[in-house]
Amino acid sequence: MEIQSVGESYVRAGQVLTDRSAVSAAARWTQAVSEADGVCVLHLSPGVDPCELAADLRDQGLRASPNHVLRGQPLWFGGPSSRPFPAPPIAHKPGKSRSDVIVGLLDTGVAEHPWWPGGGWYDALGPDEADATEGSQAGHGTFIAGLLVRRAPGVALRVRRVLDGDGLGDEATVVRALHRMRERPPQVLNLSFGCRSFDDGPPPLLADALGALPDTVAVACAGNDGSDRPFWPAALPGVVAVAALDATEEHRAPYSGHGDWVDACARGDWLTSSYLDGGEFTGYAAWSGTSFATALVAGAIADAAAGEPAKEAARRLLDGPRQIPDLGVVFPASL
């Protein structure tokens, strides 16, 4: 993927996202248009700046955005454990109880693991949902899946692979995956990735796609660069933005994003979970980052949603007694 750096954000070079209403307005700067699953990607003529064109279309009242590059966490910015480390097997036996709650997991995919048999959801996955086996973030989705099923026993995961083995994807891919979830929306959605936008404002097509899932609780990571700048989609209204605490669960992890747009926090340091089986790993790893704090919060909401609507469960849990300024309510790890 050809990437263009714009300040502290990254976009796909020569691409703008729109809905159909903006296609004709951008025709003179466009070489080709690809439309699928609710979003149009404009492939621009050489020399046209996607950020300038997106801003111009917005000034006309149209929905447009450069195709932002979305990055999985934590490896892009690093942290105390900027890569996974081998861990011994973790004692976990899937229970026989089943929940009606479905958690959508958009990530690098999910690999085969001893924790999945009997759940049904893994057998339904196709080859396109398998976890990446190569790259700096291969196994990221598998790690998160383990945190989710341990925190919310009996839930089913609906997996969509939107990131490659290096944890990179783009806004168009995520918007299309969200569009395909409209027919059978999950109760909870785990989004352990994000981006800075070129103008620090909310990406409108991504906001629209999440807004079209009104009964789904979207939970997203606050990023790992230690900044209070909004990180999207976490900072979108209605999305539960999650920061990471250190291993004591008392203080912000130094790498964690923070600010008044953050809603919740959970331990992100040195968590252990399911991972790939190969090389120095035997199916288990220790890893750190807001990605994994996000899974703990999403799992807690999914577990509570077994007995009440997910939106109500989220509101109740986010009104918890222990709050930390710029980090929101504390969710105990409970693994």
Rank of each mutant, 00 (worst) to 15 (best):
I102P: 00
V155G: 01
G126A: 08
V41N: 02
G289W: 05
R315A: 15
A306H: 01
L296M: 08
P94K: 02
R180W: 01
S9Y: 05
P204V: 01
G283S: 12
V297N: 02
V103H: 03
A220M: 03
T294F: 06
A54W: 06
G14A: 14
S99H: 03
N67M: 02
A247E: 15
V159C: 11
K93H: 13
A305H: 08
T282L: 06
G223M: 09
V110M: 09
P80F: 00
T216C: 14
G135C: 10
R20A: 15
E52M: 08
A300K: 01
P214C: 12
L318D: 08
Q323D: 03
L147A: 04
H140S: 07
A64L: 09
A156C: 05
D56C: 06
A124L: 14
N67L: 01
E183H: 10
G139M: 06
S9L: 08
S274P: 02
K311A: 15
V330M: 08
L53Q: 08
D100Y: 00
E250Q: 15
Y255I: 00
D225L: 03
H68Q: 09
P237K: 10
A87M: 02
E35R: 13
G257W: 09
V48H: 07
D263G: 10
Y10N: 05
V330N: 05
L57P: 00
G109L: 06
P117R: 05
N190D: 15
E52C: 07
